[in-house]
Computed example of a mutant assay.
Amino acid sequence: MFENDALRLLVAVAKCGSFTQAAVRLNYTQSAVSRRIAALEQQAGGPLFDRLPRGVRLTPAGRALHRHATEVLDRLVRAERELAVLHAGQGGLLHVGAFATANISLVPGALRLLRDTRPGVEVAASEGPTETLMRRLTDGALDLAVVSDYPSGLPQTDGVTTTVLCDDELFVVLPQGHRLAEAGTFDLRELRDEAWLQSAYGDRPTMLADACARAGFTPRKVIRIAEWTGKFGYVAAGLGVALVPSLAARAVPDTLVLCRLTDPALRRIVHVALPTTPLPAALELRDLLRAAAGTRDTVHGPAR
């Protein structure tokens, strides 16, 4: 209802106690100030100043509007400052999303470096599947997301750009003492008689189903365990084996054996996704993710 310039004029006149002095302070003419205040009073429904022989003073209605005006103008000043540091990449809130295994080491490592280079930036991290993350980017709820092309490529999303980060190779984790534990690299068909650990439910395609289909078999038994720690516990107990993306390799306990598979197609592509007009801090995080993806040690232990 009230224009910001009119509210600033109200505050200035109240502070100066005079239309004339406020006009000098704001580089207006005295008549311009009088006209603007009269228009503001018409909007407010009544007088805002008592006209005195020497200057003016706020009426009760003027004091009420003055209180709200100072609050509004103060909030606008703080908003301008916040936007300035946000657009400079030196502060503000950065919303970052990633799929689960990217949050094991890739994303946390890059966020640690971002904290060192831009300590004023506060990160709000979240986790979800690629489809959800891309939708949240489009909706403006995320400033950056780490996503993958599995199972059917990246969703076609307007207003989002993507950059390849790395290949995410699939490994298999075995218990110590398994007959293939010392093999290092082998064909997935060697495990066709094993029980498998996986976390997906329902009809959604899974990496395990796709990988086994490529190898020409269907798992004889699938044990569904939601969390990686549970999967690793079952493998350690000799109750099954599990596929592990390279992004999750660092989380594999040293008591288990991580082995490579011979099929080079058993991998997905990891991307970083940004809105068309990204924040400077998001661009820096993208670069830190690319550097981390290029230097990461994805395999440890017996895999070779």
Results as ranks from 00 to 15, higher is better:
P278E: 02
G46T: 08
G240C: 09
L48I: 03
P60Y: 07
R57L: 11
L106A: 06
L174G: 02
V270K: 02
T161K: 10
T255L: 11
T162I: 05
T229Q: 13
V123Q: 07
C212H: 03
T206M: 03
A69Y: 00
D254C: 02
L274S: 05
A215Q: 01
P278F: 05
L106C: 07
A14Y: 02
L83A: 14
P60F: 06
L58R: 05
T206E: 05
R115C: 00
D203Y: 14
V244Q: 05
N103H: 10
M207D: 01
T185M: 09
L9T: 07
A100Q: 13
D210R: 11
L289A: 09
D158H: 09
R51M: 12
A265L: 15
L289Q: 03
G128T: 01
G55E: 07
S31R: 12
D167L: 08
R115V: 00
G184R: 12
L7M: 08
P302M: 05
A209R: 11
L289T: 04
E41K: 12
D149M: 08
G89W: 02
G120T: 05
E41D: 13
V172I: 10
E71I: 08
R8E: 13
Q43M: 10
S105H: 13
V252W: 06
F232A: 05
L279W: 01
T262Y: 01
L174H: 01
G92S: 11
L247P: 01
E82L: 13
V107K: 01
C166D: 11
V24H: 08
W228M: 15
A303I: 00
E82D: 13
D167H: 10
P129S: 09
I223R: 07
L261M: 06
A282M: 11
L93F: 10
G91K: 04
G17L: 05
A200L: 09
F19M: 08
A124I: 12
L9E: 02
G301F: 00
A84F: 02
G17H: 04
L165Y: 03
L258K: 07
A61M: 12
G216K: 11
L52R: 09
E127V: 14
L243P: 01
D297E: 14
P219Y: 10
Y150F: 15
R286E: 10
D50L: 15
T255S: 15
L170T: 06
D158Q: 13
D167G: 00
F186R: 01
A265V: 14
E127R: 14
A213M: 10
D158I: 04
L93G: 04
W228S: 14
I223V: 15
A23Y: 02
T117D: 10
S34W: 13
A61E: 11
G184H: 09
Q21Y: 13
V252I: 10
F2T: 02
L208D: 02
R81H: 15
L111Q: 05
Y28P: 04
F2D: 01
A215R: 01
Q21W: 14
L111C: 02
A291S: 09
G128W: 00
R214L: 12
H300C: 12
L191E: 03
T157H: 08
A12V: 02
A6M: 11
E71G: 07
D139K: 12
N27M: 10
T59P: 01
Y28W: 14
R250P: 00
